[in-house]
Design a protein around this nucleic acid. Sequence first.
DNA 1: CTAAGGACCTGTCGGC
DNA 2: TGCCGACAGGTCCTTA
Length: 277
Amino acid sequence: MPELPEVQTTLNGIAPLCQGKTIAAVHIRQPKLRWPIPDTLPAYLDNAKIQEIERRAKYLLFHFKRGTMLIHLGMSGRIRCTPEQLPIEKHDHVDIIFIDGSCLRYTDPRRFGSILWADNVSTHKLLKDLGPEPLSNDFSAQYLYDIAQQKHITAKALLMNQTIVAGLGNIYVCESLFIAGIHPERATKTLTLDECRKLIFACKTVLTKAIKQGGTTLKDFANTDGKPGYFKQSLLVYGRDGEPCIECNTPLSGIRMNQRATVFCSRCQPLPPRREG
DNA sequence: CTAAGGACCTGTCGGC
DNA sequence: TGCCGACAGGTCCTTA
């Protein structure tokens, strides 16, 4: 469940339940995630109190006095916080038990997620090059336009690149490009400032709505409170290739870009807007 | 720099 | 019912 809205939904769900709590025990049943969970993690967490939890891009940051635990959910990661330790099921890789008996549990079938420690978040390898938060004012039309001018990449790659804007993924990029009327293969050099305005607006709108609806739940279930995300029913193009465009009825096109499903409307998102004369 | 591909994993679904 | 390939919300790393 991993783009920004899903991570934000996770944060909203767990923060009230574990912020301020002190850790009594850490159980690591499977340390082999995207990277191995550091051997030193349990020692860092032992008897430590969670001061604050925040989200940066698709990472959850658990701040302690001694440093920060980073959690990335990868493709299939999930976190729940329950009043007590529930029976352990397949893929429940890590439990963090608090002194009041409640349990923060990390579950991840594909194990593309990661749990790491950072002494200093601002210099951590995985975080230091992240671009601005898409919902912040730093993610502006002028900012995007300036970068678009410098790059020889496609519009889709522009928004997928976490060093340019941090938090979008395959679903929300497809959705944003559609709302902005920009073809995913459009060369960023040809984007106008006005088109960048549209893109910025589209990204912010989609993310905000998705967060409001608790994110997108594709297959399986649930967030931290057991409810699914309801944004799936609001998806305009993702997962709908071959189906009619909601704007013009043209069957949506499905292509692969960098081995990722890409869906768009060839009429609402025309390719070379033509080039000049 | 950019593009493209592999790598890391498990589960599910469609086709034969 | 079983097997096989394709595909799934990510992203790092290596190779052209």
